[in-house]
């Protein structure tokens, strides 16, 4: 646990060091970077609280057998549809998807459906779709959606094949340990 803690701080520490270097080397780029980082922080602060509140409530209130029935092995097309809808209804950047996916694993969602959920969160989010139509036109957005839906399923299927059963089980154990 301790090594994980220390390791998890290496990444932001390296980023902070890069800012120090930029500050010394090129003040203009430093300022631009800070501006974007401030913006990103605002975005995170706005988007993150409801995700983690809902995640906590999901963890406490939804019993494992219920979620397994909806999204587990043998939930079939219905389970995949639920994963698609959950991912598409999401708000927030992709990094928000992983903690939620981890709780879904813990609650018994199948590996395939969790991968579909991540795929949907990454690329078929409904609010983004509306934005895309506005900015790039309906032909562009609809074509992309039509290509992406089978694409997400194919990628999830491939991942399910490529990641061995025992690796998957390990991931589930990790998800279990993470929130107990």
């Amino acid at each position: 646990m301790n090594t994980i803690r220390i390791k998890s701080f290496l990444f932001p520490a390296a980023a902070a060091a890069a800012y120090g270097l930029l500050f010394l080397v090129n003040r203009n780029i430093f300022n631009a970077a800070v501006e974007t980082a401030v913006y990103g922080t605002r975005e995170m602060l706005a988007v993150i609280p409801p995700i983690f509140i809902l995640l906590g409530l999901l963890d406490v209130w939804v019993p494992r057998h219920v979620l397994t029935r909806f999204m587990g092995e043998g939930s079939g097309v219905k389970g995949t549809a639920v994963a698609f809808i959950m991912g598409s209804a999401a708000a927030g950047p992709l990094y928000g998807a992983f903690p939620v996916a981890s709780v879904l694993m813990k609650k018994g969602a199948s590996f395939f459906n969790v991968m579909v959920f991540i795929g949907a969160w990454s690329t078929t989010k409904i609010p983004m779709f509306l934005f895309e139509i506005q900015a790039l036109g309906a032909a562009f957005a609809l074509t992309r959606l039509a290509v992406n839906i089978p694409g997400i399923i194919i990628i999830a299927r491939l991942l399910q094949r490529l990641i061995s059963r025992s690796e998957q089980e390990q991931m589930y154990l990790r998800a279990q340990a993470a929130s107990d």
Binding site: S8, F9, A18, E35, G40, L54
Partner: peptide
């Protein structure tokens, strides 16, 4: 539930901060 939500966030927060900082430099 709130505790679990907070723990889940605290666990990953350093990574979130790292991402935001690096994205700033990248852009």
């Amino acid at each position: 539930a709130l505790k679990k939500g907070w723990q889940a966030l605290a666990r990953i927060l350093p990574q979130f901060v790292g991402i935001i900082l690096f994205v700033g430099i990248m852009l």
